[in-house]
Simulated scan of single mutants.
Amino acid sequence: MTRRPLPLCDGVPASRLQLPPGPWRTVLEALCARFPQIPQPIWESRFARGRVLAADEATPLAMDAAYRVGLEVAYYREVDEEPVVAAIERIVHMDAHLVVVDKPHGLPVVPAGGFVRQTLLHRLIERLDNPHLVPLHRIDRATAGLVLFSAEPGTRAAYQALFREGRIDKRYEALAPPLPHLTFPYVHRSRIERGVPFFRMRECAGVPNSETRIDVRERMSDCWRYRLEPVTGRKHQLRVHLAALGAPILHDPWYPELRETDAAAPALQLLAASLAFDDPRDGRRRRFDSQLRLQR
């Protein structure tokens, strides 16, 4: 089922959140608990200005709207001072249904954290004058490479099903330390859950819920160029898996340990290198390759 399209607000697309189980009386209380870094008066202001919506109806929620498990809430992010991302995206392919873009390192796909307008989605909506653009998948802000967007609501569900049903081949490249003790190709499976702080993930005991196929494309003296094929799509899966094997991706500030970085820090050497699938509209095989390259 295709989601109801939501209006832009000052050119910014809405973010969505499905409310989890909890003890809250109102949607406002639930949002304050989910985003403790945002003071309650800011949420109250957003409600008062109609910037918090019931996503299924695209209508503003009242300040005292009752909390309900599973309710999908849409809201519009706001930041006082937004960092400028100088790197520019490159459109690889565009037709009436799909837009494929090479995303540079450091540019978020959608609004998150301190980024609202400096996002790939906002840039493309303005550049292509198409408010119907929706990313069909996401890659980390720190990761570069291909992102596939739906440009037409009428065919969106068919392309979303490619990802949901695992009918799309995604290949990544990474530069990381050598792993001479492993035999390649190698398959790594583990259970990944949310870690601490909230934005990090961790491996833990239990039934595996993540799988990555790993091979080596090039062996250099100080690092290897790996080919990574995620069978599953857990958050930060490739970064967590390589770090767990003892080969954290070059310049990764979060794995295996969290460390401080600044804007001048080298980019994470992870690239979404290719996407391939049978087009659900006509069955033809399609493949897109990134023109970006990793550098040590």
Score class of each variant (00 low, 15 high):
residue 106 G to H: 08
residue 107 L to M: 15
residue 108 P to A: 04
residue 109 V to Y: 06
residue 109 V to S: 01
residue 110 V to T: 08
residue 110 V to E: 05
residue 110 V to S: 13
residue 110 V to C: 03
residue 110 V to P: 01
residue 112 A to P: 02
residue 112 A to C: 11
residue 113 G to K: 07
residue 114 G to V: 06
residue 114 G to I: 10
residue 114 G to Q: 09
residue 114 G to K: 13
residue 119 T to P: 15
residue 120 L to M: 06
residue 120 L to H: 06
residue 120 L to A: 11
residue 121 L to V: 00
residue 122 H to T: 15
residue 123 R to M: 03
residue 123 R to I: 01
residue 123 R to V: 05
residue 124 L to P: 01
residue 126 E to L: 00
residue 126 E to W: 03
residue 126 E to D: 11
residue 127 R to W: 04
residue 128 L to I: 03
residue 128 L to W: 10
residue 129 D to I: 00
residue 129 D to M: 01
residue 131 P to I: 03
residue 133 L to A: 01
residue 133 L to D: 09
residue 133 L to Y: 07
residue 134 V to G: 00
residue 136 L to N: 03
residue 137 H to V: 11
residue 139 I to N: 06
residue 139 I to Y: 05
residue 140 D to M: 12
residue 140 D to I: 11
residue 140 D to W: 13
residue 142 A to M: 10
residue 143 T to D: 12
residue 143 T to C: 12
residue 143 T to L: 07
residue 144 A to Y: 09
residue 144 A to R: 15
residue 145 G to V: 04
residue 146 L to S: 10
residue 146 L to Y: 10
residue 146 L to F: 12
residue 147 V to D: 13
residue 148 L to S: 10
residue 148 L to R: 10
residue 150 S to H: 06
residue 150 S to I: 09
residue 151 A to F: 13
residue 151 A to P: 15
residue 152 E to P: 07
residue 153 P to C: 14
residue 153 P to M: 04
residue 154 G to H: 14
residue 154 G to C: 08
residue 154 G to M: 08
residue 155 T to D: 11
residue 156 R to L: 08
residue 156 R to F: 07
residue 156 R to S: 11
residue 157 A to D: 15
residue 158 A to L: 14
residue 158 A to E: 15
residue 158 A to W: 03
residue 158 A to K: 06
residue 158 A to F: 00
residue 159 Y to W: 12
residue 160 Q to I: 06
residue 161 A to R: 06
residue 162 L to I: 11
residue 162 L to F: 13
residue 162 L to D: 10
residue 163 F to N: 05
residue 164 R to A: 13
residue 164 R to T: 06
residue 164 R to L: 14
residue 165 E to V: 06
residue 165 E to N: 14
residue 165 E to T: 12
residue 165 E to D: 15
residue 166 G to D: 05
residue 166 G to L: 05
residue 166 G to K: 09
residue 166 G to Y: 05
residue 167 R to A: 11
residue 168 I to E: 03
residue 168 I to Y: 00
residue 168 I to G: 01
residue 169 D to V: 06
residue 170 K to C: 01
residue 172 Y to P: 05
residue 172 Y to R: 04
